[in-house]
Simulated scan of single mutants.
Amino acid sequence: MVGNPARIVGYAETANPTASKPPTATAPEGITPLRTVSDIRGDLLPIDLPGDLPFAPQRVFFVHGVPSKEVRGEHAHRQCEQFLVCLTGSVSCIVDDGTSRNEYVLDDPSLGLHMPAMTWGTQYDYSPDAVLVVFASRPYEDADYIRDYEQFLALAKG
């Protein structure tokens, strides 16, 4: 403790009371690691705009309170890119570009999933405490959505 009033600056067994954790080196392909700053008070995950995301967000929204049997997403965007981060809990994500399909579980707020334009995305199996934040490269535009999978496949294949 230092100062008056006293404040905690570290614990005796703490080697480095303030550290910046490098992005997780073991992130699966397709997942983007995010920098985390940690000290005795907890972790801080800063996202500097622009810079830390693959685009400058124009919209941010949060998905929460989703019953585990419900499915979200099930659409693609013609122009909009999205970057998904599960702040708490977990959510399963399917990412499909029309030729390949991958599945990811987001369960660590220091990992994010980039979904480029013309990517079919489905999110499901939300844990009861899941909070998913979505950064979007464009404001909401109904005409940008492709909600029919067959139409998406035809557009994706050119």
Rank of each mutant, 00 (worst) to 15 (best):
residue 2 V to R: 12
residue 3 G to N: 11
residue 4 N to W: 09
residue 8 I to N: 03
residue 9 V to R: 02
residue 10 G to E: 00
residue 10 G to N: 01
residue 10 G to D: 00
residue 10 G to R: 00
residue 11 Y to L: 13
residue 12 A to I: 06
residue 13 E to L: 12
residue 13 E to Y: 09
residue 14 T to G: 10
residue 16 N to K: 13
residue 19 A to S: 14
residue 23 P to V: 04
residue 26 T to N: 14
residue 29 E to Q: 08
residue 30 G to H: 08
residue 30 G to R: 11
residue 33 P to I: 08
residue 34 L to K: 04
residue 34 L to S: 06
residue 35 R to S: 08
residue 35 R to P: 04
residue 35 R to K: 14
residue 38 S to I: 11
residue 39 D to T: 03
residue 41 R to I: 09
residue 41 R to G: 08
residue 41 R to L: 11
residue 44 L to A: 14
residue 45 L to F: 10
residue 48 D to T: 14
residue 48 D to K: 15
residue 49 L to P: 07
residue 52 D to K: 01
residue 53 L to D: 07
residue 53 L to H: 02
residue 55 F to L: 03
residue 56 A to L: 13
residue 58 Q to E: 14
residue 60 V to A: 07
residue 64 H to W: 12
residue 65 G to F: 02
residue 68 S to V: 07
residue 70 E to P: 00
residue 72 R to H: 07
residue 75 H to P: 12
residue 77 H to N: 06
residue 78 R to A: 03
residue 82 Q to I: 00
residue 84 L to W: 15
residue 84 L to P: 15
residue 84 L to A: 13
residue 85 V to W: 03
residue 85 V to F: 07
residue 85 V to T: 08
residue 88 T to N: 15
residue 88 T to L: 10
residue 89 G to M: 08
residue 89 G to Q: 04
residue 89 G to Y: 01
residue 90 S to R: 14
residue 90 S to V: 03
residue 90 S to E: 14
residue 91 V to H: 03
residue 92 S to C: 14
residue 93 C to R: 10
residue 97 D to Y: 08
residue 99 T to P: 12
residue 100 S to V: 15
residue 101 R to K: 14
residue 103 E to K: 04
residue 106 L to K: 08
residue 106 L to Y: 05
residue 109 P to C: 10
residue 110 S to T: 12
residue 111 L to V: 02
residue 112 G to T: 03
residue 113 L to S: 06
residue 114 H to C: 10
residue 114 H to S: 12
residue 115 M to V: 07
residue 117 A to L: 03
residue 119 T to H: 13
residue 119 T to G: 08
residue 129 D to G: 02
residue 131 V to C: 09
residue 131 V to P: 04
residue 132 L to N: 07
residue 132 L to C: 06
residue 133 V to M: 15
residue 134 V to K: 05
residue 136 A to W: 00
residue 137 S to M: 03
residue 139 P to C: 06
residue 140 Y to K: 01
residue 142 D to S: 14
residue 144 D to E: 07
residue 145 Y to G: 09
residue 149 Y to V: 06
residue 150 E to P: 13
residue 150 E to V: 02
residue 151 Q to I: 10
residue 154 A to T: 12
residue 154 A to F: 00
residue 155 L to G: 07
